[in-house]
Simulated scan of single mutants.
Amino acid sequence: MSEIKAIFWDIGGVLLTNGWDRNQRCRVLSSMKVDLADYESRHDAANFFWDRGLSTAQEFFRKTVFHPDQPSHSFSYDELWALVCGESKILHLDCFKILAALQAQGKYKLATLNNESRELNEYRLNTFQLRPYFDFFICSGYVHEMKPHPNIYRAAVEISGFAPQQTLFIDDKQENCTAAVSLGMNAIRFESPAQLTFDLAQHGIQAA
């Protein structure tokens, strides 16, 4: 087994809640009296570009919530965006402790590998003070491709400077882990902080 040199972390579902998932959309948009069915009919097409950093948040919501076919709303984009950002919360504080322990060792390059629009990614990195933990950031909003597409993993490995077998990817979705493994990376499907600590140890990584 190759010694692990770089560890890639998903954010939503591991460290934080998701950024803008179906449940969050339902809570926020229902509170704003937005027609959910109409919104969802537009979401996927607009989100394809937003999550890949090919459109801005304002463009995304102009195509979904503030669409010309919708009646005018009593709220502004800025008011909506504040509620979108407010959906982000710490999910597992113990994962932050694991991350801090790995950083303190100074043995590994630590990076993110996440699907997120550029604006939400920036907000979450800053608000939850994630930047100091990581050496670099692989985000779909930066590299214009999303997990589980192979190209985002290739970008991650190439930027790390290590061979795939020297990298480890942590994600809560099996399909994303499977995609990483298919390219020669190691992967842990996250279920809980305790399980993550155990599985890291199986790779020779002590996080306690």
Rank of each mutant, 00 (worst) to 15 (best):
E3N: 08
A111D: 01
S140A: 07
Q58H: 10
Q24N: 03
I188T: 04
I138N: 09
T56F: 04
L200H: 03
Q103R: 15
V34A: 02
K89E: 14
R124D: 05
H43P: 14
S55M: 07
R42E: 07
W9R: 00
R27S: 09
E3W: 11
D21H: 11
L102K: 08
L93E: 05
N115Q: 04
I205M: 00
E175V: 13
D44V: 13
S117L: 03
S74W: 01
W9I: 07
T127H: 10
M185G: 08
V181H: 05
Q103T: 07
V181W: 12
L36P: 00
R124L: 08
M146T: 11
A101V: 06
K107Y: 10
C177T: 01
Q202F: 03
F61C: 10
A180G: 12
K147Q: 11
I188S: 02
V14F: 06
P150W: 01
Y142Q: 12
P71C: 04
Q166V: 05
E175A: 04
L183N: 07
S31M: 08
N176I: 03
A100G: 10
L120V: 11
W9T: 07
T56G: 02
L54E: 00
V34W: 04
D78M: 14
H73A: 10
E191S: 15
I170M: 01
S117I: 03
A45Q: 15
F96D: 09
E145W: 07
G19S: 13
G86T: 11
A6K: 12
S30L: 14
T17I: 15
F61R: 09
M185C: 14
R27A: 08
E191D: 14
H149T: 12
A187R: 05
Q174P: 03
I159E: 10
R118D: 15
V143N: 02
K107N: 14
D44K: 14
P193L: 05
V84C: 13
E59S: 04
E158L: 06
L125P: 02
Y153R: 11
K33C: 15
G141P: 00
S76P: 04
L125F: 13
E3D: 06
N176E: 10
A46E: 05
S41G: 14
D78W: 11
T167M: 11
S72V: 09
A104T: 07
N23D: 09
Y39N: 00
I188P: 03
H203A: 00
P150I: 01
N23P: 06
E3V: 07
A6Q: 08
M146I: 08
R189L: 14
L120E: 06
K107Q: 09
T127F: 15
H149A: 14
V84H: 13
S192Q: 13
Q195P: 12
S192F: 01
H67E: 06
E145V: 11
K89H: 13
K147V: 14
G141C: 06
F190R: 01
T178F: 01
T197S: 07
Q58D: 11
K63R: 13
N115D: 12
A208K: 14
M146V: 15
D69L: 12
F198A: 12
F128A: 02
D69S: 11
I98F: 01
